[in-house]
C-alpha cells in the first residue's frame, strides 16, 4: 500500500491505496463520493468523468497513485456554495437533460470542461465534445440543449427532434 494525498473538491484528503486502485474506486470507496458513476469500467461510457488538474479524465482509466498531489474535482463539488444547483446542473433540470440520471455526473463534468475552454460552443462542438459520454435514455438532444442554454445561448430555436 502507498499513501496518496490529493485535493478533492477543495479539501485535502489522503488514503492508502494499492498500485491497482483506480481513481474511481478511491473516490467512491475510500472517500464515499459515489456521485462519480462507473458505467462500463472499460473506458467507453464517460459516466466516471472527473477533472484532474482541470482536465476531464475517465476516473476508471487512471490510477489513484497517479493522482497523488493533484487537484481533483467531482460532481459533488459542482453545486453553488449555498448548495443550490450550478448553472449547468440547473440547465439539465430545466431542459430535461436527464432521465435515469446515471450518465449525468459525467455529462455535467464534461460540459463543465468544455465550457471552461469554449464558453460559447456551437451545437456541433457540443456534440463532438460528448463523443465519449454515452447516454442510454435521452437521445442526447436535451443534453446538448441544456449545455447550450448553460452557456447563455438562446435555445428556443433548438426544437425537440
Amino acid at each position: 500500500m502507498t499513501k496518496v494525498t490529493m485535493t478533492v473538491n477543495g479539501k485535502a484528503v489522503s488514503g492508502d491505496v494499492e498500485g491497482r486502485t483506480l481513481l474511481s474506486s478511491f473516490l467512491r470507496e475510500d472517500q464515499g463520493l459515489t456521485g462519480t458513476h462507473v458505467g462500463c469500467d472499460t473506458s467507453q461510457c464517460g459516466a466516471c468523468v472527473v477533472h484532474v488538474d482541470g482536465a476531464a479524465v475517465k476516473a476508471c482509466t487512471m490510477l489513484a497513485a497517479e493522482a497523488d498531489g493533484a487537484n481533483v474535482d467531482t460532481i459533488e463539488g459542482q453545486s453553488n456554495a449555498d448548495g443550490s444547483l450550478n448553472v449547468i446542473q440547473q440547465a439539465f433540470q430545466d431542459h430535461h437533460g436527464l432521465q435515469c440520471g446515471f450518465c449525468t455526473p459525467g455529462m455535467v463534468m464534461s460540459a463543465a470542461a468544455l465550457l471552461k475552454d469554449n464558453p460559447k460552443p456551437s451545437e456541433t462542438e457540443v456534440r463532438e465534445y460528448l463523443e465519449g459520454n454515452i447516454c442510454r435514455c435521452t437521445g442526447y438532444h436535451n443534453i446538448v440543449k441544456a449545455i447550450m442554454a448553460a452557456s447563455g445561448q438562446d435555445v428556443t430555436a433548438i426544437a425537440a427532434e
Binding site: V57, K58, S110, G132, N133
Partner: peptide
C-alpha cells in the same frame, strides 16, 4: 483520436 477525456491522458 478517441474523445476529449482519452486525449487528455
Amino acid at each position: 483520436i478517441g474523445d476529449p477525456a482519452v486525449r487528455n491522458r
